[in-house]
Design a binder for these strands. Structure first.
Lengths: 111, 111
DNA sequence: CCCGTACTACGACGCTTATCGTAGGAACGC
DNA sequence: GCGTTCCTACGATAAGCGTCGTAGTACGGG
């Protein structure tokens, strides 16, 4: 069903106040998703799904991006045939101060 | 805590260097387990499993304590008919600096 | 209008998880 | 030994998750 809007198709994101700690932790507890978050944090800009190399199939990749979005970890918006992904750093820092940085630091320290 | 038991039953714990970020995040992503961790952090001493009130059955409770132990979040040791539980604060802080505090702060801020 | 690119919805699969009840073991006090 | 308390192993069940392939939609460019 086509929605009337000037911009591209929209995707549902939880608001800043709706972020749930358990959901965020669960989203971050998967190696593939953690890899996505690391990549987005390193790039520090919005990139397409395909810009992140993952060791899984395309459909699985889509699945993981959706989990991250629904948990409120990333923001996604359509742009042409692509979908841009960005870390919701501000929202995460506001609701769970220090959490994202601690996870990123821990994830990076293992290489 | 007089741990001088005559070869009391021992439990397996991952060493500090064996802690895995994903496992810890997963362990903390369950509401019941998060409640346990909060309680242990608040009490700040080793307590028996039964000292933590949980909204689940005894067997389920045992299950969650085991998940936390195997992820390296808590330490457990038998003491008489009880099993004492303690947060592995030092190990967690050493491997994942700031993570536990961020999670605890976030968990507490929702009441 | 057709084609390629990029993402997605769907269904399937095998595995893991959370939950419970029951039965039972280990330590302690008597 | 006996009973109590506390925890645990086991089996069952239902739900969830990660993975994939296939088929499909949306967009932009010739």
């Amino acid at each position: 069903m086509p929605q009337q809007r000037p911009a591209a198709r929209q995707l549902d994101h939880p608001g800043r106040e709706e972020l749930r700690l358990e959901a965020v932790l669960h989203a971050l507890s998967d190696p593939v998703r953690l890899q996505v978050v690391r990549a987005l944090a390193d790039l520090d800009e919005e990139v397409a799904c395909s810009a992140v190399e993952l060791p899984v199939s395309k459909s699985t990749s889509t699945h993981h991006f959706r989990v991250l979005r629904e948990a409120g970890v990333i923001a996604q918006c359509y742009y042409g045939t692509s979908k841009l992904n960005g870390l919701r750093r501000d929202d995460l820092d506001a609701r769970f101060p220090g959490l994202l940085d601690a996870v990123l630091a821990a994830a990076r320290s293992r290489d």
